[in-house]
């Protein structure tokens, strides 16, 4: 684990529950208790109504590929070992959109609209990244 050399997310105090969640293989979405908005990315105050009364709910972990790219070259050295890799925007069933990687499949099989499910990749003791693979049901 200690040899993970790629960039880790720059965690903020108000996003810490998200990363504590992924460490337990749970995908958490921030919610506003005042106006009910589902919030991504997590904020200190609700971006809809500025309420500071915020909570968390667990996502079902499923979504669809909104768009993607298969990256083949032109990356920093620390990502070079992953080439080719799929970078994608995922529309979660809960109505938010996240950036991520589509894994556990041939990059050539990824397409817009493809159903995916979350998988958790523990990269350090502190950080587990949510990733996405084709939905297996």
């Amino acid at each position: 684990m200690s040899e993970y050399s790629k960039p880790l997310p720059a965690v903020q105090p108000w996003s810490r529950p998200f990363w504590e969640g992924t460490r337990e293989n749970r995908l958490l979405i921030q919610e506003c208790k005042a106006c009910g908005a589902k919030i991504f990315y997590p904020r200190k105050a609700c971006p809809e109504c500025w309420s500071a009364e915020l909570g968390w709910s667990e996502a079902c972990g499923r979504g669809k590929v909104y768009t993607f790219t298969v990256t083949l070259t032109g990356v920093e050295e620390k990502f070079a070992g992953d080439l080719p890799y799929v970078l994608a925007m995922i529309d979660l069933d809960e109505g938010i959109r996240m950036m991520g990687n589509v894994v556990e499949c041939d990059p050539g099989d990824v397409e817009i609209g493809m159903e995916v499910e979350v998988v958790f990749e523990r990269v350090t003791d502190e950080i587990t990244l949510p990733k996405w693979r084709p939905f297996r049901g």
Binding site: P9, Q12, T71, V75, M98
Partner: peptide, 14 residues
């Protein structure tokens, strides 16, 4: 975004 995008290998081209 250094928290929600960059860790997944974003580039301008990407």
């Amino acid at each position: 975004d250094l928290q929600w995008e960059y860790p997944f290998g974003t580039t301008y081209n990407g």
